[in-house]
């Protein structure tokens, strides 16, 4: 039983990161219908920027803020310089554009930070804690807490503020939103900025556990995207469920079967779920075209 709790806690930790990355995918997709395959690179930038700032001796809380602001600006720039210019391009072209952006960011990162894995100190003293026979580090608790805070804040932003309502409106019916005076450009900008901030948060949180490197974003991006698809690409709660589920599947698969088989097990289950429910766990079945 102790093993089960151990694997579950490990799964929830990594699943929390996947959930935040998946929320980034959903945030952009719901408003712009763009699948941003550079989302993992925002995570990588978050981790590596935090490494640089902490190695310069910047206090953690300040490094946190600076990192999120810096990566958010990168997200905003990506929308402003690339996506906006390619407005009206077909979805495949836009996906290729985001892949190109990911490769570009990765290239710059390898030049700036090198190709080695780097060490970032945990947020607090990292003495493991024992919970129901399972050992968990304070940093892992921080990761889960950050995910819960992110989900709560995102819920409040989207459902309780005028900006959030406008954001939802752009997602539900872009045409009607435009006639309400809601600028699609502003909403697209907001979605990329918010998504980059989410990526940065994930990177910050995971950096002390998974030593950051220039190529860490690739796998995290794939897992986050898988989580978003599993949950239903337009659904934020689905993204969280998808992320946690993938984290748990990985951890339990590695623990009980084989660590070499963890991805095979995870993606087999994902495929099975999508065969039964192609729109994802909480995705809405689409019938023809929406809008007006």
């Amino acid at each position: 039983m102790g093993d089960f709790f151990q694997f579950t806690l490990t799964g929830l930790t990594i699943g929390s990161i996947y959930a935040i990355v998946a929320l980034g995918f959903v945030t952009i997709y719901s408003v712009t219908k763009v699948i941003n395959l550079a989302q993992g690179e925002f995570v990588m930038l978050g981790g590596l920027t935090m490494y640089s700032l902490s190695s310069f001796g910047m206090p953690y809380w300040l490094g946190f803020i600076v990192t999120i602001v810096f990566v958010s600006i990168i997200g905003w720039l990506m929308e402003f310089v690339l996506i906006r210019r390619a407005k009206g391009a077909n979805p495949i072209s836009l996906i290729i554009l985001t892949i190109g952006t990911a490769i570009f960011i990765r290239g710059i990162a390898s030049m700036v930070w090198g190709k080695d894995q780097l060490r970032v100190d945990p947020f607090t003293e990292n003495k493991p804690v024992n919970i129901v026979g399972a050992t968990i580090t304070p940093q892992a608790i921080w990761v889960i807490l950050i995910m819960l805070v992110v989900v709560s804040l995102l819920y409040i932003l989207i459902n309780k503020t005028m900006v959030g309502k406008a954001f939802q409106a752009s997602s539900i019916n872009p045409l009607a939103a435009r006639l309400m005076g809601i600028s699609p450009k502003k909403m697209a900008s907001l979605s990329f900025t918010l998504s980059a901030a989410l990526g940065a948060l994930a990177g910050l949180a995971i950096a002390p556990i998974m030593f950051p490197s220039y190529d860490m974003g690739t796998m995290l991006g794939i897992k986050g995207f898988s989580a978003a698809i599993l949950g239903g690409l337009g659904s934020a709660p689905g993204a969280v469920i998808g992320g946690l589920l993938i984290g748990l599947l990985e951890s339990l698969g590695a623990g009980y079967i084989s660590s070499g088989m963890k991805d095979v097990i995870t993606f087999s289950v994902i495929l099975l779920i999508l065969l039964i429910r192609p729109s994802g766990i909480l995705g809405e079945k689409s019938v023809g075209k929406g809008g007006l």
């Binding site: 309502k165 406008a166 019916n173 009607a176 006639l179 309400m180 005076g181 007006l292």
Partner: peptide, 25 residues
Amino acid sequence: ARAFQNIALFAHMSVLDNLKLGRHI
């Protein structure tokens, strides 16, 4: 301002929220 022939409301939102969106501008 424009009201549509084939209703273009935000179906999941309440009446109040739909009207509040009219104030966004």
